[in-house]
Amino acid sequence: MSKNLSGKSERKADARSYHRTQMQKEMIIQKLKEEGCRITKQRLMLLDIILEEDCSCCKEIYYKASKLDGKIGSATVYRMVNTLEEIGAISRKNMYKISCGEECLEENACCVELSDHTTCNLSAKMWNAVIRAGMKACGYIDNQEVRNVVVTPCECGK
């Protein structure tokens, strides 16, 4: 009996979450229209990805979008994210917030792009270990644990 009630409450919570996401999507679409933006299939797809998934960067959004539409370009993703930020629908600061400790098992929590354009995907546990080792090597910490990292995007255009 409790299993059945639990399933019903989970479905109700999922339905509320879906409804809230749909309302957010409709409000964002309305703001985009007010700004004179065309509402294309690619923009709708990107909006769905951003609303439904916890993406930490534009490259992650692009990676997920390119699986759905091989014709989408990374510039489209960056323009959409910039537009959404301009209309106040998202905050890029929140997109880059990573708040997992060593016990977290989140895969691909961080994607690092190197100067030769290769990327390195790190799990939350590995990301935490890299940050901790670097901070320890530079003398910033002794035995403290990294609890949270917030990366501020560079505005210099590099």
Rank of each mutant, 00 (worst) to 15 (best):
K12M: 10
Q144H: 03
T21E: 13
I61N: 03
E107A: 11
K136C: 01
N4P: 00
Y78G: 01
C138L: 15
L68W: 00
K93E: 12
E86Y: 04
T119C: 12
Y140Q: 03
K59C: 12
E113R: 10
Y78V: 09
L46F: 09
K25I: 02
K33A: 13
R16P: 00
A137P: 00
G7D: 12
L68K: 14
N108W: 05
M95W: 04
V150W: 10
K31H: 09
A15I: 06
I98P: 00
R16F: 11
R11Q: 09
D116L: 01
E26K: 08
R11N: 04
R147Y: 12
E145F: 07
N108G: 04
L51H: 03
T119Y: 09
S123P: 03
K12D: 06
R20F: 08
L46M: 14
L114R: 11
S56L: 09
M45F: 04
I61S: 04
Y140N: 01
I87P: 07
A133F: 06
K67L: 15
S115E: 13
T21M: 13
S2M: 10
K158L: 10
Y18L: 14
Y62V: 01
G70R: 14
A13S: 09
I29E: 13
H117E: 15
C111Y: 07
C37S: 15
E26C: 00
E85A: 06
Y96R: 11
I90P: 06
D69F: 01
S17Q: 14
R11I: 02
I72S: 05
C57T: 07
E35K: 13
R132F: 03
N128F: 03
E107Q: 13
I98Q: 10
I29V: 14
R43W: 04
R43H: 08
G70T: 08
S2I: 09
E106A: 12
E107S: 08
R147L: 15
I131F: 02
C154P: 00
V112R: 05
G139S: 05
L105Y: 08
K71G: 05
A137D: 12
C111V: 10
I49V: 07
E10D: 11
Y140G: 01
G7K: 15
S123G: 04
S9E: 11
C58S: 13
I50E: 08
N82D: 15
K158H: 13
L5W: 07
Y140M: 10
E34T: 03
E155C: 02
I39F: 08
I141Y: 02
I131R: 00
K3V: 07
